[in-house]
Structures are given as structure tokens and as C-alpha cells.
């Protein structure tokens, strides 16, 4: 069986007009998503997460490489707007307040994508009712305008607008980063529940690692447009093998002063500019393991375990040295213990 989404050697460059320079936004990225699976792309700003998402949607054309959705090629004019793809790939945006039409009631917003599928009014109304039920939105809420809803409820509608066409794949671009922690937790629950009920696959783009940890089946770590490590979520968080993944995981703060940021590896400085990348490993300038070879040659991506890929010359040295522990799992145990008292 073919994967739902297959991306092979994707390259995207943006020329900077007048300068002769080129932004190397995405460099040879390959990934697959199976039906009903969640793959997360994590990385700092400028790592190419959103660009990959846009290429997958066919909203921008890749410079090189292939994207196949359900076995058929995307790109070169074939985008999510193509007749046979309409409604099968959907998108959820970061800022719910900005992505909803302020002059549309929630019910209208939910029904809008269906008009392009040629559904009649009765079928549309039926479908909107179903979706409202999935989302836990009352009849009364469907008559409200975006400004009358909290950010969490707005994002609920943003997700409802995506699932209303019963898509096979949803690209979620930072769906929780504009939300308060309590609203964020509700949206994460909703996404997990909907995936269980509808079997939708997710491509989640996020820098919120604690959300990624609990929602993803697999995680790909991006750095300067390159996937440096990819593994099943639990494995990646328990045993990251790329120095960048370790640095990224170590900078996450959990609400427990006892869980200190502990790692033998710390990344100095910031992500460099993706214009005219030097040869060699993209992390070489910031990495404590880097040697002369890292500055000259680009490390190949190698398999280091079941579905675990790493692009680092020194991953065995990293594995021997680093004592990273899955802080998220420890935090979860701790919070279970701590918060399991007192509620009536």
C-alpha cells in the first residue's frame, strides 16, 4: 500500500531579487505520512517547517523533488485547489482570530468549504451539524461571530472548518501557539480524539515540543531546511542522537523546578542565515562535536534503529556521552503524583 503522502528529495530555494543570492529554505527533505498518522516537523524559526507545509499543499512549487499525495504527483499547477483534490487536504492556521472571517457566523464559516464541493444546502447543513457535534459546539454558538468567542473556541472552529470536508490529511501550522495553556490542552485533546474518530492524518508544524511529544506518532527535527533526525515520538524524546535534537529538547521548560535543564550538550548562538549555506553539516558552527570533516562534508542520513534516522557523523559519540532523560515522561509521572489529591 502506498503512503498517503510521500515527499522525495524536496528542495525549495527563494531567489533574493537583485542580489544574485538565494535563500536555501528546504534542502533534500524526504518524508512519508501514512493514513491516520501524525508526523510532526519541529525546529526553530527559519528551519523551513512552514515552507515544507506550503509545498505539500501545492501552494508554492518546489524547486526540485517530488510530492505524491495518494500515489499521484502534486505541484506544477496541481494544488489542493485541483478538482480531484478539493477537500482531501486541509489546513489549520496559527492565529484563529486572523484566519476566521469576522463577518461570518460560525455556522457559515463551517459550511463555506462545502460550497466548493458542489453540495446542496440540505447536505451542507447536515454536515455542519455533524461537525458541530464532533467539536462540542452548541446550536447557539453556530450563530456567533468570531469576536464573540474565546481564542480556544475560535481555534475549535478553525479545526472544524478543516474537518468538514472529511479530509485525509490536515496540515496544522502552529495550531496551539497563540493559545493559553488551558485552551491549548483542550485543542490537543480535540485533535487526538478527531484522529481516532475520523482517521485523519496530520502534518503538524510546531515548536511547542510538549504538544508534539504527546500528539505525534513520528517526529522529524529540522535544522536549516534539512531533516537532521527522525524517529518515533517516544524514541526521539527518550533517546535523541543528533546534537541539535538534544539541544532543542534541553531548552524546553516544564512547570517543575526540580526538572532542571540537564544536558551535557548546549548549543551556542543562533540559527545562521539560510542564504548561501556553507558546505558540510549545517550545525557545524554551533556543535560541540564538530571537527574538520563536519565543516567540509555533509553527513549522510543513516538508519540507527527501527524507523530512526540520524544525519550526524558523530552520533555514536553523542550516544555514548549524553545522558538525556525523557523529561516529559518524568514530568508526567511527577504531575500525576502531585495533582492526584484533593479533587472531590
Amino acid at each position: 500500500m502506498t503512503a498517503l503522502l510521500e515527499v522525495n528529495d524536496l528542495v525549495k530555494r527563494f531567489p533574493i531579487p537583485g542580489s544574485g543570492k538565494v535563500v536555501q529554505a528546504v534542502n533534500d527533505v524526504s518524508l512519508t505520512i501514512e493514513r491516520g498518522e501524525t508526523l510532526s516537523l519541529v525546529g526553530e524559526s527559519g528551519s523551513g517547517k512552514t515552507t515544507i507545509g506550503r509545498c505539500v499543499l501545492g501552494l508554492i512549487d518546489p524547486t526540485a523533488g517530488q510530492i505524491r499525495f495518494d500515489g499521484r504527483a502534486m505541484g506544477r499547477g496541481r494544488s489542493i485547489r485541483a478538482r480531484d483534490l478539493r477537500g482531501r487536504i486541509q489546513l489549520v492556521f496559527q492565529e484563529p482570530a486572523e484566519s476566521l472571517d469576522p463577518r461570518m457566523q460560525m455556522g457559515e464559516t463551517l459550511a463555506e468549504p462545502l460550497r466548493y464541493l458542489g453540495m446542496n444546502r440540505a447536505d451542507r447543513e447536515q454536515r455542519v451539524r455533524e461537525v458541530a457535534e464532533h467539536l462540542g459546539l452548541s446550536e447557539r454558538m453556530l450563530a456567533l461571530y468570531p469576536t464573540e468567542l474565546s481564542a480556544g473556541l475560535q481555534q475549535r472552529v478553525g479545526i472544524g472548518r478543516a474537518i468538514v470536508t472529511r479530509p485525509e490529511l490536515i496540515v496544522l501550522d502552529e495550531p496551539t501557539s497563540a493559545l493559553d495553556p488551558t485552551a491549548r490542552a483542550e485543542i490537543v485533546d480535540l485533535l487526538i480524539r478527531l484522529q481516532g474518530e475520523l482517521g485523519t492524518a496530520y502534518l503538524l508544524i510546531s515548536h511547542d515540543l510538549s504538544t508534539v511529544r504527546f500528539i505525534s506518532h513520528r517526529v522529524a527535527v529540522l535544522y536549516l531546511g534539512t531533516i537532521v533526525e527522525e524517529a518515533e515520538s517516544e524514541r526521539l524524546f527518550a533517546r535523541p542522537l543528533h546534537p541539535y535534537s538534544i539541544g532543542l529538547l534541553a531548552s524546553v521548560l516544564l512547570p517543575d523546578p526540580e526538572l532542571k535543564r540537564s544536558s551535557s550538550i548546549s548549543l551556542e548562538g543562533e540559527i545562521p542565515s539560510p542564504i548561501d549555506l556553507p558546505p558540510g553539516c549545517p550545525l557545524a558552527g554551533r556543535c560541540p562535536f564538530a571537527d574538520a570533516r563536519c565543516h567540509k562534508e555533509r553527513p549522510p542520513v543513516v538508519s540507527v534503529g527501527p524507523r530512526h534516522l540520524v544525519g550526524c557523523f558523530h552520533h555514536d559519540r553523542v550516544a555514548a556521552l549524553d545522558q538525556t532523560i525523557d523529561q516529559f515522561a518524568r514530568f508526567q509521572e511527577e504531575s500525576n503524583r502531585l495533582l492526584s489529591v484533593g479533587a472531590d
Binding site: 495553556p181 488551558t182 491549548r184 490542552a185 510538549s210 508526567q332 500525576n336 495533582l339 484533593g342
Partner: peptide, 16 residues
């Protein structure tokens, strides 16, 4: 406690 529970990614704990 509700705020802290929001970080736990444990739906049962949060619901509580």
C-alpha cells in the same frame, strides 16, 4: 492546579 494540570497531557487528570 488547573493551570498546572493543563501541562500534564493527561486528560483524566485535567478533567479532574
Amino acid at each position: 492546579i488547573m493551570l498546572l494540570a493543563a501541562f500534564s497531557h493527561n486528560p483524566a487528570l485535567r478533567a479532574r
